[in-house]
Write a protein that binds this DNA or RNA. Structure first.
Length: 257
DNA sequence: ATGGTTGTTCAACAA
């Protein structure tokens, strides 16, 4: 079973690339972030024509998440379902082939002294509560998405330039560790230990040609899946050519069922 | 160099 996550940075601007990518890679499930479109603008028909059903939580202009799969996503849950009124579309969950998939677009946080960073912290608190209350780590479970967290220095080309930022500081590293503490494992690192592997490059300053990137898109998996992870990769070829997203897809192969 | 690029919506915001 091949599962993947990709921040597409507008599903409308990326529709053709998305369709070609699905045809070429044939993942069993793909989690998308930053649709930047309401549900009614999602290309359900075009996606169905290449063999995928979609569960979508859309939002006008910002955010928006979706889970695409070759079989219809089951038991879809939109948002955290907690008592906080939050208009930002950043979390969607569904079951595919008996694996609970949670697709997240973690807030960026802007700057550490901003209200947006306060929201990022609160949002991560709510994510931990969401996982705990549903006891998701007890069963086959994967948490995929744009975490907006650099887990370690080796996950940045120039870690010194990011230290202290909203993506890379002691608190955010602790938050990533907290997720691992729930019983999750970074499936990408389970398979790939080398440096220089990134999932995002700035559009500016020749970020991609210089490989000045970050690994901020992650696939964390529960204990019963981690031992079955057979391969992982980042499709950096998708960052090439005309009008790519600033993020590349991250893929994990699991021996399942 | 508080720089540069992309997307959405329409001058500004977010990343």
């Amino acid at each position: 079973m091949l599962i993947a996550t990709w921040n597409v940075n507008s599903v409308r601007a990326r529709e053709e690339r998305l369709l070609r990518w699905l045809e070429n890679h044939q993942p069993d499930a793909l989690c998308l972030q930053e649709l930047k479109a309401p549900e009614e603008a999602f290309p359900f028909d075009a996606v169905r024509e290449v063999g995928y059903e979609a569960a979508v939580l859309g939002q006008k202009t910002y955010n928006g998440v979706a889970i695409l799969a070759k079989t219809k996503p089951e038991d879809v849950e939109l948002g955290f379902g907690d008592d906080i009124d939050d208009p930002q579309a950043r979390c969607i969950a569904a079951t595919v082939s008996g694996i609970r998939l949670v697709c997240v677009y973690v807030p960026n946080g802007s700057t550490v002294d901003s209200d947006k960073y306060t929201y990022k912290r609160l949002w991560l608190d709510r994510l931990v509560t969401y996982i705990e209350e549903r006891e998701l780590t007890a069963d086959p479970f994967a948490l995929l998405g744009d975490y907006n967290i650099i887990p370690e220095a080796r996950d940045a080309n120039r870690p010194d330039e990011w230290e202290g930022s909203v993506l890379f500081n002691p608190e955010m590293r602790d938050r990533f560790g907290e997720l691992l503490g729930l019983g999750l494992t970074d499936a990408f690192r389970q398979c790939r230990d080398e440096d220089g592997l990134y999932s995002w490059w700035d559009y500016r300053q020749l970020g991609f040609p210089k490989n000045n990137g970050l690994r901020i898109d992650h696939i964390l998996v529960s204990a019963d899946l981690v031992e079955r992870c057979t391969d992982a990769r980042i499709d950096r070829d998708e960052r090439k050519g005309q009008k790519p997203s600033d993020h590349a897809p991250v893929l994990v192969e699991i021996d399942w069922p």
